[in-house]
Design a binder for these strands. Structure first.
Length: 394
DNA sequence: TCTGGGGTCCTAGGACCC
DNA sequence: TCTGGGGTCCTAGGACCC
């Protein structure tokens, strides 16, 4: 067994709202929510003051306004948030290059070689937290553990500006008493199903996982084994510091009003296709599969996808493929939202290399095989037992 | 004025191939 | 005759996260 690592998860508290407060300090201490104020608008993030009124992420904006009449609503400014995020990551990278960006407002990092003595851990990260605040005014909560899961649970344990250390031997004391709703990976569909079979806390879940409970296995599928490991303190501790290539690029939009007018739908698909195309080109990706998403007035969501031999990132091709999917499946439907996603992404260069390599191998194999058979036939001076074309298939 | 938009991963059935 | 089994790809739907 290898030495336990020091894995850290840093979460920027109420990140979008905090960014706005930093830009405009007069907002500080006021109820602020970020998100669109209009049809379909929801709260993306809100300040801690707004939370006192019951406002929370994903809450419809009209409800948030009801809950907090003097709520200050600001549209999101992603360029600014990404710039602040980059500042944050640069700060963490001063300590270690082993940083994994998990999203715009959180990262994992491996501090194993940075904090030599375990006794120093609490003071070290308290200072890091204060330094980040003094330099950037960003607030963060920090989780420290031996795995990414434990670090993640730690950063969520106390907010804002919290610091929680969860070693393997702390799991029972810190995590077991928590409600199942606090468990990372268990969402609002699975939690009720587990509660229905008597699992109300993380401790209950750990206990039933330990017993290889069949009911729990049936609910969680292969995720059962991941969770069992997590709660045994044996999850992943690998920091993936190289950003991974995107596997899909999509864009979707809720219409101003529900519609079944083909013209409006075509216009939106065109805009979506252009946006997807632009981003694919920026990422240097082409994709074989086009998926469209259609949300009906009653919120029922449908996806249709089709895969082509020729990958693309050309907006007209994406548009044509999307529209034909729509015409074949949904014409006449009254829709609320439309989306296009480009999937099965590959790098055009890689494809060129793969193709040429493929052709090369095919040629090599054919000629080599034919030579071999001809040689054998010559040596045996007999009619061939096997035709070269059959050998090729093996 | 009801209920976003960006993703990832898993499941499960059918087609197809060997 | 009574209907292999493994692997991959495609497709639809769903859960989850931020």
């Amino acid at each position: 067994m290898s030495m336990a690592k020091v894995i850290v998860h840093i979460d920027l508290n109420a990140f979008f709202a905090r960014c706005e407060e930093i830009r405009n300090p007069s907002l500080e201490g006021k109820p602020v929510a970020i998100g669109r104020d209009g049809r379909g608008g929801v709260v993306s993030t809100c300040s801690y003051k707004a939370r006192e009124y019951g406002v929370h992420s994903a809450m419809p904006m009209f409800q948030a306004k009801q809950a907090c009449p003097n709520l200050i609503i600001l549209p999101s400014d992603f360029r600014f948030y990404w710039a602040m995020s980059a500042t944050f990551v640069a700060f963490v990278k001063r300590y270690t290059k082993l940083v994994e960006i998990a999203s715009v407002d959180e990262c994992y990092a491996d501090f194993t070689d940075v904090v030599k003595d375990v006794k120093d851990v609490p003071a070290f990260f308290k200072k890091l937290q204060k330094d980040l605040y003094n330099e950037t005014k960003l607030k963060c909560s920090i989780g420290v553990g031996t795995t990414k899961f434990l670090a993640k649970m730690g950063s969520d344990y106390q907010k804002p500006m919290g610091l929680t250390i969860i070693r393997k031997r702390d799991i029972a004391k810190i995590l077991y008493p928590l409600s199942l709703d606090k468990m990372y990976g268990i969402g609002k569909k699975t939690a009720p199903r587990l509660k229905h079979i008597g699992i109300n806390t993380i401790g209950d879940l750990a206990d039933r996982c330990q017993k290889d409970d069949q009911q729990v296995k049936d609910i969680l599928g292969k995720f059962f084994y991941v969770i069992k490991d997590w709660l045994n303190g044996e999850g992943s501790d690998e920091i993936i510091s190289e950003p991974e290539d995107p596997k899909s690029i999509g864009n979707s939009s809720t219409l101003m009003h529900d519609t079944n007018a083909l013209e409006e739908i075509q216009q939106l698909f065109q805009d979506l296709a252009k946006e997807v195309s632009n981003r694919a080109i920026k990422e240097g990706k082409i994709g074989n599969t086009i998926q469209i998403t259609v949300k009906e007035s009653d919120f029922k969501v449908h996806n249709k996808s089709i895969t082509f031999d020729t990958p693309t990132n050309d907006w007209k091709t994406i548009y044509t493929r999307a529209i034909s999917l729509y015409n074949d499946n949904f014409v006449g439907l009254t829709v609320r939202l439309l989306g296009i996603t480009l999937q099965n992404l590959i790098n055009p260069k890689d494809m060129a290399i793969q193709m040429s390599l493929f052709d090369y191998e095919k040629h090599e194999e054919e000629s080599a095989t034919k030579l071999l058979i001809n040689e054998l036939n010559r040596k045996l001076s007999k009619p061939s037992l096997m035709r070269a074309s059959e050998v090729d298939k093996k």
